[in-house]
């Protein structure tokens, strides 16, 4: 999220704090804070109105701690830079949340009957957990590791510390209680990519910024002539999603 002039820059305020405070005065009640008043407050006490200055991020699946983790995780993988806003601003966490709250998160189209055995890596996923359960257990385990080793939750770590954690998740070397780190990472990584590049109807890829990043034109695709006309040349068009044509 890019703040407009006079708006409160929320980037380094942990969302968890903000929501906790919002909860204290009643969820859904906008807290009017004038920019001047906000700036006068100590930074860790600043509260913005989620209704006006933060993108609408109300989660169906993630609780506050999980939301803080997933936002920090997604923004570590997809940081804001000159190419695009951050993953969270692109709706990737909303995408993941909706997937986990829905049929896929509950294990639709997965064979989930026992008996259970770890098996070999060639035999693939063998946990008795549906994706939503895996996220819940794994986030708890990663946070326990962060607290023990770094004395703070993942979202409060320095970027270099986060990088170490993410790296160790991805190569499976992060010691997590009960959950194989890499199994979780592979699923979460795939979900981040889906949230960046799936059609915006699923909550991510906001303003088709994922598609714009690579130059994917979206759903309107009648290229029988274009394949000759644009052979070897860029094809610059405004990308269209399912909602644009429905």
């Amino acid at each position: 999220m890019k703040s407009g002039p006079g708006e409160i820059e929320m980037a380094d305020i942990a969302r968890r704090d903000m929501l906790t405070m919002a909860g204290a005065v009643g969820v859904g009640v906008a807290i009017p804070v004038s920019p001047a008043a906000a700036e006068a407050l100590p930074k860790d006490k600043v509260q913005g109105s989620p209704a006006t200055s933060a993108p609408a991020r109300s989660y169906q699946f993630f609780d506050l701690n999980e939301a803080a983790f997933i936002e920090a995780f997604v923004d570590h993988l997809v940081p804001a830079d000159e190419l695009s806003p951050s993953g969270t601003e692109l709706g990737i966490t909303i995408y993941i949340d909706r997937q986990l709250a829905g049929a896929w998160g509950r294990g639709a189209r997965m064979y989930l009957l026992g008996p259970w055995a770890a098996g070999t890596s060639q035999q693939g996923y063998q946990l008795p957990l549906a994706p939503a359960d895996l996220y819940r257990c794994a986030i708890r385990a990663v946070e326990a590791h962060c607290e023990t080793v770094h004395g703070g939750s993942f979202d409060r770590l320095q970027p270099a510390q986060r990088q170490k954690i993410v790296q160790a998740l991805s190569d499976g070397s992060l010691p997590l209680q009960e959950i194989p780190a890499r199994v979780f990472f592979d699923m979460a990584y795939a979900n981040v990519m889906e949230g960046l590049f799936a059609d915006p109807i699923y909550g991510g890829n906001k303003d088709k910024r994922g598609w714009r990043l690579v130059g994917f034109p979206g759903v309107m695709a009648a290229h029988a002539e274009n394949i000759e006309r644009f052979r070897g040349k860029p094809y610059p068009v405004e990308p269209l999603g399912i909602a644009d044509l429905s």
Binding site: A108, R109, D199, V219
Partner: peptide, 25 residues
Amino acid sequence: SVPMIRDELRYAVRNELFMDVSRDT
């Protein structure tokens, strides 16, 4: 029909047209 069929997530990632392994694998 277009645009619904141009949905990579639904068809190529969530496998809507393929066998449902929750029933038989």
